[in-house]
Each structure stands twice: as structure tokens, then as C-alpha cells.
Simulated scan of single mutants.
Amino acid sequence: MVVQGRKLHAAAIGFFEIIIYITALGKVVNGLDDPGNLLAYALGFASGNYIGIFIEEKIALGNFAAQVVLKTSKNREVLDSLRNNGFGVTSVQGSGKEGSREILNIALKRKDLDKLKQILYEYDERVFITVSNTKPISGGYFAPKKK
């Protein structure tokens, strides 16, 4: 939430997180004579991280910027398929070790990443894809929100 600039969400979650942290840490520090307390705290912390990451992946808030290097002869079909599925795609020509390539720049919602990969893998199982978090500033193309 902090990285994505979601100030209110980050503050609210942080408020409850620190209450839990101080309460749990206080019990661990007061019971240092029992190593089980320390072990229980460490296990709770580790499982909290694991569950938190799992939940965050399912919620999938935010946006990605994907760059795709096409190695297929069906570039036009790939572009049409992506655009028909609601992806905004900008295509540029590039050159690599093995010759000319088409490079696609795609802005997408995080929850649509699996759909993007599925479409691309239909045309080329060895397609080169890089993805990074992004925070769009203005303009661009995003499919209308689904209700």
C-alpha cells in the first residue's frame, strides 16, 4: 500500500499492525524465561507474512507495465487478440541478436496479468515478458471498469 501511494489504506493497516505488534512483543518480552514464547512469536510473524502476501496477491491492487518481445510470425494476430481482450498495447520495432523483433508495451491492471500471459502463450510458449509495478500519471488506455 505504501509503495502504491495508497496513504489512507497504509495508515489504517499500519495502525492495527502496530497494535498487534506491540501487544504480541510485550507478551514475548515479559515471558523470556519460556523459549516457547519466542518460538510462537517467530512462527506467528512468519505465518503472518506468508498469509499477508497470499491475500495481497489475490486482491491484486495496482497496475503493471509489461514489455513483451515477440518472436512469432503472428505478430498482427497477437496484437489484435490483446486489443480485443481490453489491453492497451503500443508496438515498436527493435532488433536483437537474432534479428528484428516487435516490442509491445502494455499497461494493465495487476489482476489481468494471468490473462495477458495466457493470450501470449497461445502464440509463443517462449515469449519474453518483463513486468514492473507502475503508477500511471495521466492518459493512456485502460479498459472500462467492470461492474
Rank of each mutant, 00 (worst) to 15 (best):
M1W: 05
M1P: 11
V2C: 03
V3A: 15
Q4A: 12
G5V: 06
R6W: 02
R6Y: 04
L8M: 13
L8S: 13
H9A: 11
H9Y: 05
H9D: 09
H9R: 08
A10L: 02
A11L: 12
A12W: 07
A12C: 08
I13C: 07
G14E: 03
G14C: 07
F15S: 09
E17N: 13
I18D: 09
I18T: 15
I19H: 08
I20R: 04
T23Q: 11
G26P: 13
K27G: 13
V28E: 03
V28W: 02
V28M: 10
V29E: 10
V29F: 13
N30G: 12
L32M: 13
D33L: 04
D33W: 05
D34G: 03
D34Q: 09
P35L: 06
P35T: 07
P35R: 05
G36V: 12
L39S: 07
A40I: 09
A40Y: 14
A42E: 10
A42G: 11
A42P: 08
A42I: 06
L43M: 09
G44C: 12
G44R: 11
G44V: 12
F45H: 14
F45A: 15
F45S: 14
A46D: 09
G48E: 07
Y50N: 08
I51K: 09
G52L: 07
I53V: 15
E56F: 05
E57H: 14
K58L: 08
I59Q: 04
A60M: 10
G62H: 06
G62S: 09
A65M: 04
A65F: 02
A65W: 01
A66Y: 00
A66T: 04
A66R: 03
A66K: 02
Q67F: 00
V68K: 04
V68A: 04
V69I: 14
K71S: 15
K74R: 14
K74I: 08
E77Q: 13
E77L: 06
V78R: 04
V78F: 00
L79F: 11
L79N: 14
L79V: 14
D80R: 15
S81E: 13
S81G: 02
L82A: 06
L82E: 11
L82S: 06
N84Q: 13
N84I: 02
G86A: 03
G86F: 01
G86T: 05
G88L: 01
T90D: 07
S91K: 13
V92P: 05
Q93R: 14
G94P: 06
G96D: 12
G96E: 08
K97V: 14
E98D: 15
G99T: 08
I103Y: 00
I103A: 01
L104H: 02
L104C: 03
N105F: 05
N105W: 00
N105S: 06
I106A: 01
L108A: 04
R110Y: 04
R110Q: 10
K111C: 04
D112T: 01
L113H: 07
L116D: 05
K117F: 00
K117S: 00
I119Y: 12
Y123V: 07
E125T: 09
E125K: 15
V127K: 06
F128H: 01
F128S: 01
T130D: 01
T130L: 02
V131T: 11
S132A: 08
N133R: 03
K135C: 00
P136R: 03
P136V: 06
I137K: 07
S138L: 00
S138K: 09
G139F: 01
G140M: 01
G140R: 03
Y141T: 05
F142E: 03
A143P: 00
P144G: 06
K145W: 00
K145E: 07
